[in-house]
């Protein structure tokens, strides 16, 4: 599984890096970006889904097969 943030949708609410700080971090303006290449370590799948489900702009994208 891999995560990424759609930069066109993200408005910097910061819910992804609050809910799943292992997977997301803020950039200099507070927008969310995936940590590293976005690969979700084993056991972190639930955190990834929660980050997506808590994003007000629906900007967190999960690639299940990646």
């Amino acid at each position: 599984m891999r995560v990424r943030v759609d930069d066109d949708r993200c408005e910097g609410h910061g819910r992804c890096y609050a809910v799943a700080p292992e997977l997301f971090e803020p950039d200099e303006i507070g927008n969310g970006v995936a940590v590293g290449d976005g690969t979700v370590p084993a056991g972190m799948e639930r955190a990834a889904r929660l980050a997506a489900e808590n994003c007000p702009e629906q900007a967190v994208i999960i690639e299940e097969d990646a």
């Binding site: 408005e11 609410h13 507070g30 489900e53 808590n54 007000p56 702009e57």
Partner: peptide, 20 residues
């Protein structure tokens, strides 16, 4: 509540700049 997609700070380009 684990899933909480609220919009207390607005939505879109005017998301509350002071939310953090």
């Amino acid at each position: 509540r684990e899933v909480n997609r609220h919009s207390a700070f607005g939505l879109g380009i005017h998301r509350c700049a002071g939310s953090h």
